[in-house]
Amino acid sequence: MNSFFKYFSDIFHGVKSLLIGMSVTGRYFFSPGQIVTQQYPENRKDLQMFERFKGEVILIHDANNQHRCNGCGICENNCPNGSIEIISARVPGEDGKPKRIIDKHIYHLGMCTFCGLCVKNCPSNALGFSQEFEHAVFDRSKLNKVLNKPGSSIIKGVE
């Protein structure tokens, strides 16, 4: 007799638990306002990334096309996967001594793991992260970027 009741109580509890589960999905079905999906290409204009978002490494330039990088190579040494290559040049300074400036600050986006060590360890805070995240390109070579803009120079007093 006991097993007879157990048979029916099993059915009852089983059906009850199934209905509880269905109440959850049913509730979401009838409340589409709870949908959190972002409509990505449509919301592109007002899509705001967080200020610390690690999009890609950039060399921060000011309005006068000047940056703070003196080509010391600490970022290159700190990079775990060799994504940064510094090609520096020597030009005669104002006092006549040869002075080191960067010729090319090459950044291989395809190799970067966004660990942030270059930005953290830069002694003159020349590097930063941009909020750019749409990195897809048709050619791999386009991922090798030169970070210092053409014609840019170093801010006086940084070196």
């Binding site: 509890h13 059906v15 638990s17 199934l18 509880i20 589960g21 959850v24």
Partner: peptide
């Protein structure tokens, strides 16, 4: 709570 309703107590899941 939804997690528990939809899976934990579900007879099929048990």
């Amino acid at each position: 709570k939804d997690y528990e309703k939809i899976l934990s107590g579900n007879v099929i899941f048990e």
